Simulated assay, not measured.
Amino acid sequence: MDCLFCKIIEGEIPSQCLYEDDKVYVFKDIDPQAPVHFLVIPKKHIDSLDAMEDEDSELIGYVFKKIRDLAREEGLEDGYRVVHNIGEDGGQSVKHMHFHVLGGRSLQWPPG
């Protein structure tokens, strides 16, 4: 598979790993948009939320629990934003489900 995030998970492409277990891989964004900006990706390749199957629901619930835990560990008690881009018009640049976690400053709305 020629997927950037699958290659990062496999260690073929270096990243600044924050957390890894058998279900998720978490690493710092290479172009951070906030003082804290990391990506949480399921190790199972799923293109996006639109491609999710019913059997993936438990995995995605686990992803969100990890987001919560890691946000706490990163000191984001005052709040943070979780972003999942879907499709070209939604700004998705890598076709592997991933969640951006941003915090460490006040995040305005609308984002852009």
Rank of each mutant, 00 (worst) to 15 (best):
L102D: 03
G91N: 06
R105H: 03
E73C: 06
F5C: 05
G11T: 06
A71N: 07
L107D: 00
Q33H: 11
V94N: 00
R68I: 12
H37Q: 06
K23M: 13
D29W: 11
H45A: 08
Y80T: 02
E55I: 14
Y80D: 00
K66P: 01
A51T: 05
I13D: 00
L18I: 14
V26G: 10
K28A: 10
Y19L: 02
E20V: 09
E53T: 13
G61M: 00
D31W: 13
P111Y: 14
L49E: 06
V36L: 03
P14T: 09
S15Y: 05
I46H: 09
K23E: 13
I46V: 14
I30S: 14
K65P: 03
I13E: 00
K7Q: 09
I41S: 12
A34M: 09
G75K: 04
V63W: 01
E74H: 11
S15H: 07
R72I: 14
P111H: 15
L102N: 08
I13T: 02
G61N: 01
H84E: 15
A51G: 03
G11C: 05
R81C: 02
R105C: 01
K7D: 01
D78H: 07
G11I: 03
L4N: 08
V83F: 00
P14I: 05
K95V: 12
E53G: 13
P35L: 11
H37I: 01
G104Q: 12
F27Q: 11
L59D: 01
L70V: 10
D89Y: 09
I67G: 03
G104F: 09
Q108F: 12
I60W: 05
R105V: 00
Y80L: 00
K66A: 02
S106F: 08
H96Y: 06
G90R: 00
S93A: 08
D31T: 15
K43C: 12
V83I: 15
L18M: 13
V101I: 12
V94C: 02
E55D: 15
G90L: 03
S15I: 00
D78T: 07
L70W: 12
N85A: 05
I60Y: 10
Q92N: 08
S15R: 01
K23Y: 15
D69Q: 14
G91R: 01
P14G: 09
P35M: 11
R72C: 10
S48L: 06
K44G: 08
Y80Q: 01
P110R: 13
S93M: 05
E73V: 03
I9G: 06
L39F: 11
D54Y: 10
H84V: 14
F38W: 13
H96Q: 07
P32W: 06
S15N: 08
G91H: 08
K66I: 11
F5E: 03
V63K: 04
G79L: 04
E10S: 14
G11R: 01
I41Q: 09
V82Q: 03
E12T: 02
H45D: 05
D54K: 12
S15E: 07
P35Q: 13
K23R: 15
S57H: 09
E58S: 12
M1P: 07
D56Q: 11
G90A: 08
C6L: 06
I67R: 04
E53D: 15
I60G: 00
L4T: 15
K44A: 09
D22I: 06
V101T: 06
V24D: 04
E55F: 13
G79I: 03
H98A: 03
H100S: 04
P32H: 10
G79H: 08
H100M: 07
P35K: 08
S57N: 10
D69S: 14
